[in-house]
Design a protein around this nucleic acid. Sequence first.
DNA 1: CATTTCACTCAACAGTTGTTGACTCAACGA
DNA 2: TCGTTGAGTCAACAACTGTTGAGTGAAATG
Lengths: 184, 184
Amino acid sequence: MEGTPTSRAERRRRTEERILSAARAIFAERGFQRTTIRAVAAAAEVDPALVMQYFGSKQELFEQAVRIPSIPPLDGELEPVEELLGRIGMKMGPLPQATLAMMRSMLTHPDAAEEVRGKLDGQVAQLADAIGPDDAELRAALMVSTMLGVTIAHQLLGLTALRGASPERIAETLRPSLRALADG
Amino acid sequence: MEGTPTSRAERRRRTEERILSAARAIFAERGFQRTTIRAVAAAAEVDPALVMQYFGSKQELFEQAVRIPSIPPLDGELEPVEELLGRIGMKMGPLPQATLAMMRSMLTHPDAAEEVRGKLDGQVAQLADAIGPDDAELRAALMVSTMLGVTIAHQLLGLTALRGASPERIAETLRPSLRALADG
DNA sequence: CATTTCACTCAACAGTTGTTGACTCAACGA
DNA sequence: TCGTTGAGTCAACAACTGTTGAGTGAAATG
C-alpha cells in the first residue's frame, strides 16, 4: 500500500489540495453559478461543511482555485506574434483548468469578467508596446481578441472545424492574420 | 390618453411581447442561470405565475425569447470579408438582444452552447464555400472565431482598448487580418 | 496518561428558485 | 342578461442552495 502519512499538517495540506483540484475541474466544466459546494465536496470525498470551513465562501473558493496561473507576460525574447501563436498549444499543453474555469465563468460572473478584462487589458498594453506605432493599442486589442475567439471556439465551444485540427496547424494558419495586425 | 385597447387577443399579444422583451433584456444582461422568472415577471410588471402559464418553463421562455433573429446567411452579393466586417456594426446597429442573450449564456448553458455551435458551424461551411480551396474549412473557422472573439471582447467583456473605438474603425483595422485568412 | 487541539462530520436553518392549483374578474358569445 | 371563457393574481409547495453551530475522535502536547 501507499504510505498513509497521518500527520496533521500533511493531511490538511492534502485534503485542501484535493478540494481545490475538484473545484477547478467542476468550475471549468460548469462555470461559477452551476457549480455547487456540495458537488465539489462530493468530488473531493469530503463533507460540504469542510469546504466552507477551509475557504469561507463559494466566492473565496473560486478565487483560490483560479488564482494560480496568471497569463504569463510576454518576455520579449520571441517576436510577439510567434509568442502569441505558441500559446495556442504548441509549447504548453492544454490550458490549465484554472484558466478554463475563469474563461467559462467570465460571461456570467461579474468578478470573473473583471479579472479577465484586467488580464487582457494588461496583455494588450504589453503587445501595443511591442508592435508598430500607428493604432498600436487597437491593433493589439484585436490580436488579443482573435486569440480569445480562437481559444473559446476551440476549447469551450468545440467548433466542428476546429475539433480535428492540431494546435500546430491552427497556429500556422492563423499566423498571416496576426502578422497583418502586428504590421499594421 | 393613449387608447386602452382592452380586447382579449390584443391584451394577450401585448403582455406576451412585454414578457419576451423583458426576458431578452435580462437574459442578455445576466445569462440563463442568473435570470429568474421572478425578475422577468417584475420587469414585465406581471405575476411570475403568468410567465409560466404562457411559456411553460424557464427553458421554453429562453428558447422563445432568443429564437427570432438567427445569424443571417451570407447572401453572396458582397465579398465574404466585407460582409463579415459589415456585421461588426457598420450596416446594422448594435447586436439584437436575443443574440446577446445567446452569447452571454453559451459558455454555461449547454443548450445555448449547442445552438451557437450549430449556427457557427453553418457559417463556417458557407464561408468555406466562398473562399479559396486550400484548408478552406480551417481558414473559414478561424475567420468566424476571430469575429466571435472581437464581438465578445467588445460587447460582452468591454476590453478597454475597444470600448472607445467606433465599429467602423474596428472593421477597418481588422480587414487585413480577415483578408489574410480569406486568401490563404 | 491527561488534556488540548483540530480535521472532519452531522443535522439543520434560511433564503431563493422553478413550478403549481385554486381563485378573481372583466371580456365574450348566445 | 347570463353563463362561459380566459387573462391575470395569490399563496403555497418542494427542491436546492450557501452557510452555520454543535459535536466526535484521533493526533499533538505536556
